[in-house]
Each structure stands twice: as C-alpha cells, then as structure tokens.
Amino acid sequence: MTAVAQTLPAARRSKRMTPARWGLYAFIFITALYFLLPLYVMVVTSLKPMAEIRQGNLLALPIAPSIDAWVKAWTSACTGLTCQGIKVGFLNSLRILVPSVAISILVGSLTGYALSLWRVRGANILFGAMMVVAFIPYQVFIYPLVRVFSFTGLGQSLFTIVIIHTIFGLPTMTLLFRNYFASLPVELFKAARVDGAGFYQIYARIMMPMATPMIVVAVILQTTGIWNDFILGLVFAGRDNLPMTVQLNNIVNSTQGERAYNVDMAATLLTALLPLAVYFGSGRWFVRGIAAGAVKG
C-alpha cells in the first residue's frame, strides 16, 4: 500500500443530514403542503363570515371564527327548491349505505367462497368474466338498467339503489373474498367436510368467522366507495333519496345570486367527514383495502 492511499476520506463521521437529505425533506415538505392545502382552505373558509372571505386572503386564518356556516350548511342550505340543509342528504346517504354495505359484502363473500373452495364447473369462467366487467364504465349499463327497474315497477327507490350498489360492488367483493379464502389452508375446508358440515354451514361457521380481517377491509372499501358515489345515486336513488354527494353538488352549483362560499365549504367538509373519519380511524387497514382492491385478477 502506498502512502497516498492512506489519506482516504476518513472523515464524514455522521451521515445524518447530508445535502441530499435536506433536499429530500424539502421535497416531502412541499408535497405535503400541496396535499394539505385544500383541506386547510376548506376548514378556514368554512369558519369565516362572508365579509371576511370577500375582503381577506384565502389562506388567512379567520379573524372572527364562527360556526354559523356549518349550522346553515347542515340545517338550511338550499338544494334547488327545498332549503333543509345537507342533513337530508346525510340521512339519505346513511340509509343507502348501511344496507348496501351489508348486502354487498354478504353476496360478495358467498360468491367468493363458492368460487374459491368449491369446484363448480365454469367457476373460473365466471370469475374471469367478473374481473373483466369490473373495468367497464357505468355509462354502458345505465340506460338498460333504468329501463329494467322501471319495468319491474321498482323505479327509482332506496331498494333500487341498494341493489345497484350490490351489483357494482360484486366484482371487487368477490375478488377480495375469493383470494382470501383461497389463501387459507385447504385442509381446514377438507376437515370440515369430513366432519360432515354442508356448504352453508362451512361458510357461516368456519369461513366467515375466520374472514374478519377481510370483512373489515370490505367494510372500509364499500363504505368509502358507496358514500362517495355520485352517478349511481343520481340516477337510481330517486328524488327523495338523493345521497349527500348529489345534494352537495346541488347546493354549491345551483345557487342563485351570490354564492356563500363558507356554507359551501362547510357542506363539502360535512360530506367528506365520514370517509375522512373512516380513513384516519382505520389507519393501515385503508391501505390494505386499496392493495386488495387494486390487485385485480
């Protein structure tokens, strides 16, 4: 070894904060701002009186914060002709949400169970077809479905929208449960068969109790999905059952005269509240739901 080689960079003891690291944190900080900005603006706008909004800065904190806009948005904002606030939509959304989530998970898990553990002829074709149609836009089905429902006399109703959510949730729910049941040790299923349990007994007594994690994921996925739906609710729920998203859009985009931005933002936040609560409440489960729902096929 030569003496030159002895003088290798023996310095740089700590690698904690290099320039690259500073750049990284700067990037994270700036992107985080971009993602947080709309939420922040929504909150501050909803707490300002209109006068302050007109004169002040979009980003400024409210000088005299007030929840008047929230109260108004909830109880008396106008959607077209009626002025009962967005609470009507909230209640409608809840009435749509609960049965839709329950029934779609029930049907989806049963289908996934039948497709994964029982060798029914044509099961793979059925499953493959379901994965293909999951990608097709609703616009392709909507008109015939409207006709079918009006022909059967159901028309636009709570019942109709629940069925519609079940139908369009079926591919994802089936995929979710099929993959989960297929990942369980098949010996479990065989042991239950040897013990003499039948199709529905195995489903109800053994498989579903084991599928709790998947049920949680499915509930998260369906709750946010159905709550956030706009187009299906608009077309199938009927005038008296319009979900919150539709009512929100009506409040904001069909006002006459000057727009009450604070009320608009309060209503928007109220509509986003449930999915946000689900998201922040469920933590990693939400990510898991995305992962499970994202990996189609």
Binding site: T224, T268, Y279
Partner: peptide, 29 residues
Amino acid sequence: IRSIYLYPYSMSFVVTGLVWQWLLNPTLG
C-alpha cells in the same frame, strides 16, 4: 406523511371538484 399523501383518495370526486373549484376561483382563490 403517508397519511397526508393518501387522504385525498378517501374523498369523493364531488368534494375534490368543489374544493379545487374554490381554490382556482380567480376572484377569491
């Protein structure tokens, strides 16, 4: 940080659209 990046995905397009409509509003945005 991950929660911050992902939370918009939990919100509906209607909410997203209305927020950005407000942000991009030329008079007050």
